[in-house]
Amino acid sequence: MKKILIARPNYDNGTNYLFFWSEEIITEAKSSGYNVTDVRGDEVTQKNIIGRLNSVKPDFVFLNGHGSKDSYCGHNLEEVITLSSAEALANTVTFIRACNCLEELGEASIMKGGRAFIGYKKEFIIPFQYEYIARPLKDPMARPVLEASNQIPKSLINGSTASEAVDASHKFAKKQFLEILFSSKYSEDLYLNGALMALVNNDLFLDMKGDKEAKIS
């Protein structure tokens, strides 16, 4: 059985949105027959993640949270994977949904044996409306942005290559751009304007490194 490791800290507004928007990925992976290791909340520490990567040896690693050029951070900004520990991602297809991780951390993971690494070159931005912060799945402003990035794990779970998964997200984002731009509400709905800016930003900086043909299934 193929194995997936998902990490989803939940200690601030941004990670709270990522936490809840990752649930549909877990559901889909389980229903597709994957063995899912769900590391959540304050369990997302360096010790737990590196330990699970070494013991579970997942085929696909999906990490949510905050990041920088040289590290992925878990609970309370603890550095979980850094340039010096990037070999922990060897033999995996990895998607890190966090800021800035692609260029340096992604490159390091590939140099140390990672199969493919998908991530963002700059900030990953989540727009939201304050009245929805207790119900992130209902937030209409965040929806197009998080649905676009969810296309990546969904595509990989359903048998796409890493490159196809990135393209699926670009394609979804493009569809969203056009729907928003040509919405009859666009000129008057300033929430849509904010959503569009974040969608364009995130899509522009999404890319991958490593084997474009890598699959997890």
């Binding site: 900030e123 990953f124 931005i125 989540i126 009245e131 300033l190 304007n193 904010g194």
Partner: peptide, 18 residues
């Protein structure tokens, strides 16, 4: 300034902003 007052943005580790 054109955006509604109840809009926020989470910008990675920079934090969350009104």
């Amino acid at each position: 300034q054109t955006m509604p007052p109840n809009v926020g943005f989470s910008i990675g580790s920079h934090g969350t902003y009104t």
